[in-house]
Design a protein around this nucleic acid. Structure first.
Lengths: 347, 347
DNA sequence: CGGTGTTTAACCATCGATTGATCACAGGCA
DNA sequence: TGCCTGTGATCAATCGATGGTTAAACACCG
């Protein structure tokens, strides 16, 4: 005889009441409709029987699934796991489950993901890598699915998001390099269809002016993607001009890693010949050769905040779309040094 | 007017048939109960209306959710993301969703996770880091929840699992070190309550005999956990004996990383003074200083196979529990070298 | 043409929880 | 005593899909 899981009817009959009464007791919002004594008694019996609400049945009736989806482009990018973990833990603490959708190599279009989400009555969506004009965002808004962006945002500022302060980040990195004595600073940015790529690029240009540094277009390249090969290719491109520069400010740790490759290819040394800064402080960059000077972003916290924001929005879908912005800080390691000792990169 | 998602009744009334007829048509197993012509017509209409089965309702009725849980101890350990990705993609291709349960810092007991899974009608479970005697495994078996272990297995061999060939791995690593000329080889293993920790340790001892090397217990330590601090502590412990050794074989990349720390602390150099091998070839170990010689495990493939195995078991729960074993191979980088040039570690 | 056998599709209860409508009953007040 | 009010619990419909059972339609045959 299979010990079948107690359902609401079991609890009701055991307590000698109607299932609906049990339902009301167990739902905080309706508990007041039932007398205190009975409520206590029913709660006791429910615990005794080990009753758990069946989320499928409940969800069918209420159109809620207590499940949210996290869409990320590639879980193996070390930036995302901490975010996902932060999201997952926070949601879990609130009784929500997280289903993971790695959109990267997914053959289904993003539209397909949304379809799936809708069919499954997903209560909300966390999108970890939106593009600046991302159709998925409009889909969500049209469909009325609560959405929170994390890490990157979109041009339309009416979407809730948890991002980091890119302006501050670029400023900090540039300041750091300037303080070390660098004047000729190359920039390798990210794809311009991402908010981070765009903002960091614009800020870099602005900050050059602010700090009264020369702007040389040949030293500024936006990589095609936030990947090592793209970073390497970008730096190769810059080096092709054979111009002098003593430092590279990159918009992303993986791009910085690509720079390492290009620098090594040319028989040069980081940081002796060229200083490099990253962005994100993803796990293990302190282990690289050399350990990367970069901007630390509280990735866990990003995830936690995104989850909280989503919970808030699911409770109150009409609320104004908040944008939360976390401040990065500089972590100085060994990929940057003063250019005094630099030999100019030559070929 | 909200354009509400077409349900089975909409399709039925549009086709002028009863909902159950539609249901039968859309279920491959029962399609034969309906005439071909009508089936075709219903399929056409369903597509036209963009009908998607509601998994909640369907699951409520059939006790299936088309959802699988992946339980991992810590997503930020770089070993797991590739596995998770492999699992997720494979499941997705078969119409299943994956919900992620990061058990590590989860306050709920593992029992709690199982409870949650059961309540949600989870169809199956993939457990990425079982301990050798893991209560969760028995729970699953008792509850009849299809279960597949990945990466680690349990003592009870009646459980489906996808693991890698630990014996082969240790043999390859040891052979590599011996071929370089090492004779005094330390070993830093993992927790003995994990199958990997246990098997690798036993195999190391066995292989020492096979290769006719001396067994010095002082050079053999099993770390408390697969973490960098634990690896560092283990090596510190070994170094406390001030015995000679020229290489360390570790059972895990993170342990190897901890060894780097201890080696550096003592003012020594890897590989010049001490060679180190890892195990797993987790992402970015090729970037470390020095790039780590380690055993490559096809982590993605591990995930894919685990997902396939689970799908199989969910279809046919009675089937025999298969164990799949993937072969690792050696990736030689710069953390190992011949001891000829070594200066013996002294203090 | 009536009887039997076989498809084919409709009917309806069901999964478990929720909720608007409804009823029972106690107490208050004239 | 009779009527009203309000609290507290029950009734019954519902969410969408499914599947065992049953009715209808049709073919076949003596």
């Amino acid at each position: 005889m299979v010990k079948h899981r107690a359902n609401i009817k079991d609890v009701a009959s055991r307590a000698g009441v109607h299932p609906s009464t049990v339902s009301r007791v167990l739902n905080p919002a309706t508990r007041s409709m039932v007398s205190e004594d009975l409520a206590a008694e029913i709660t006791r019996i429910a615990n005794e029987l080990g009753y758990r609400r069946n989320p499928l049945a409940s969800g069918l009736r209420t159109q809620k699934s207590y499940t949210v989806a996290i869409v990320i482009p590639d879980l193996t990018n070390p930036v995302f796991p901490p975010i996902v973990r932060g999201v997952e833990h926070t949601l879990d603490a609130h009784g929500y489950n997280a289903i993971l959708a790695d959109s990267g190599s997914k053959q289904r279009s993003e539209k397909g993901i949304i379809e799936n989400m809708k069919a499954r009555q997903i209560d909300g969506l966390i999108l970890a890598a939106a593009r600046r004009k991302d159709p998925i965002v409009n889909d969500c808004i049209e469909e009325g699915i609560p959405l929170v962006l994390v890490n990157r945002t979109v041009d339309n500022h009416n979407v809730a998001a948890v991002i980091n302060d890119d302006e501050l980040g670029i400023e900090l990195a540039l300041k750091h390099l300037i303080e070390l004595g660098h004047r000729c600073i190359a920039y390798i940015g990210g794809p311009q269809n991402t908010s981070t790529g765009y903002t960091r690029y614009r800020t870099f240009l602005k900050m050059l002016k602010t700090f009264d540094l020369p702007v040389d277009r040949d030293l500024i390249v936006n990589a095609k993607a936030y990947t090592e090969p793209a970073g390497q290719a970008a730096l190769e491109h810059i080096m092709g001009y054979e111009k002098k520069f003593t430092a590279i400010l990159t918009a992303n740790d993986l791009l910085a890693l690509g720079c390492y490759d290009a620098i090594n290819e040319h028989g040069l040394n980081c940081p002796m010949d060229i200083s490099v800064t990253g962005f994100n402080d993803m796990p293990y960059v302190d282990r690289f050769n050399p350990p990367l000077t970069t901007l630390h972003i509280p990735l866990d916290e990003l995830g936690v905040q995104a989850a909280l924001l989503l919970l808030e929005r699911m409770q109150n879908p009409g609320a104004l779309a908040k944008q939360i912005r976390l401040a990065p800080h500089m972590v100085i390691r060994e990929s940057t040094t003063s250019p005094a000792e630099n030999t100019p990169p030559n070929k």
